[in-house]
């Protein structure tokens, strides 16, 4: 469905490449995610694939069309949802969709049903200019579904949305995926990539570092993480923690996935004033520095619990690229 080979792109037409030497393929019915921090080149890649940016260097085939010579008719098969919502503020939500659907030569979905799908049915006849950011985003999102695309491009589909809406959108994408729509999505949210993608590509500084399925990645990297809970006295602990934290960022399992490498910590026997804390930390077994840190902890601290842990995509991303997903 999508084939990219040796793709380079420079906005400035020099050797400052926003994406360099990118190659990947997406099979029919597959969902593929580009995972990377902001500025990595995800949107640039999507924009080349959707013809918004001209293909200069490299070979790109999308839905059977050579992107060196894109044809207007190919867009009957494509759906594109944008990172920044872009709807006519002076038109109502319904008018926006009614106008857009007429631009396609293929059967389209009912706009009102689409609005209902994302909870915009109440404001269908309100001008989009009066919408909140999240509402505009939902409108942009459902607009990309109008022509029932067989290949669906989603640029940061849930970024900046409140969790309830994000999960609605996630469910819609999941359902389409199950019905066979090929999906290309970009995100810096590893939970989304984990949940929606058959395969993910890690992209950093315009370079694709690794492509694999989330499952394979976890099998490969997961068993090498050890989670340890141990007791630490206040005085000795602060120093030791800071020392280790400075050497290697350690990811907490915070719910939003934007873990900042803090150390889980809980005061034991609160009120006694002893300052003893329960520390929870992850150690990678592939990193010698962390292995040494783990050995030190094992030797000098009182261990409460200890087990191997499946790594999140984000942790793996950090291991592979040395970068965080922010």
């Amino acid at each position: 469905m999508v084939k990219v080979e040796g793709l380079y792109y420079s906005y400035t037409n020099d050797d400052k490449y926003a994406v360099k030497d990118i190659s990947f393929e997406i099979a029919e019915g597959e969902s593929f995610g580009l995972l990377g921090p902001s500025g990595a080149g995800k949107s640039t890649t999507q924009n080349i694939l959707t013809g918004l940016l001209p293909l200069k260097t490299g070979e790109v085939q999308v839905a059977g069309y050579d992107m060196h010579h894109p044809k207007r008719e190919m867009f009957n098969k494509l759906g594109v949802s944008f990172e920044q919502s872009n709807v006519y503020g002076k038109l109502t939500a319904l008018e926006n969709l009614e106008f857009y659907r007429k631009l396609f030569d293929v059967p389209t979905l009912d706009p009102m049903e689409l609005l209902t799908l994302v909870g915009l049915e109440q404001v269908a006849s309100k001008k989009a200019a009066t919408f909140s950011k999240g509402m505009k985003h939902r409108l942009t999102f459902v607009r990309s579904m109008l022509n029932q695309p067989i290949l669906w491009f989603l640029d940061e589909p849930t970024t900046g949305l409140d969790p309830a809406i994000a999960s609605v959108i996630k469910d819609i994408v999941k359902e389409k995926k199950e019905r066979g729509t090929t999906i290309f999505l970009t995100t810096h949210n590893m939970f989304l990539a984990d949940e929606l993608c058959d395969r993910v590509g890690f992209i950093v500084d315009g370079e694709l570092r690794l492509i694999d399925s989330p499952r394979n990645l976890k099998l490969k990297y997961g068993e090498k993480l050890v989670e340890v809970e141990y007791v630490e006295e206040a005085a000795q602990g602060d120093e030791a923690n800071q020392a280790v934290a400075a050497e290697q960022p350690i990811v907490s399992d915070s719910a939003d996935g934007s873990g900042t490498g803090t150390v889980g910590r809980a005061t034991i026997g609160g009120g006694t004033g002893t300052g003893a804390h329960l520390i929870r930390r992850h150690f990678s077994l592939v990193d010698p520095v962390e292995v040494a840190a783990l050995q030190e902890v094992l030797a000098t601290r009182k261990i409460e619990t200890m087990h191997t842990k499946e790594a999140t995509l984000e942790e793996i991303f950090i291991k592979v690229t040395g970068r965080k997903l922010v």
């Binding site: 959707t50 013809g51 918004l52 207007r72 008719e73 867009f75 009957n76 494509l78 594109v80 944008f82 920044q84 919502s85 872009n86 709807v87 006519y88 503020g89 857009y100 631009l103 396609f104 030569d105 942009t140 607009r143 022509n147």
Partner: peptide, 14 residues
């Protein structure tokens, strides 16, 4: 400014 040109660019409209 609104980016609606981009939205048109990914339709079969010329």
């Amino acid at each position: 400014d609104e980016g609606t040109i981009k939205a048109l660019t990914v339709t079969p409209a010329k």
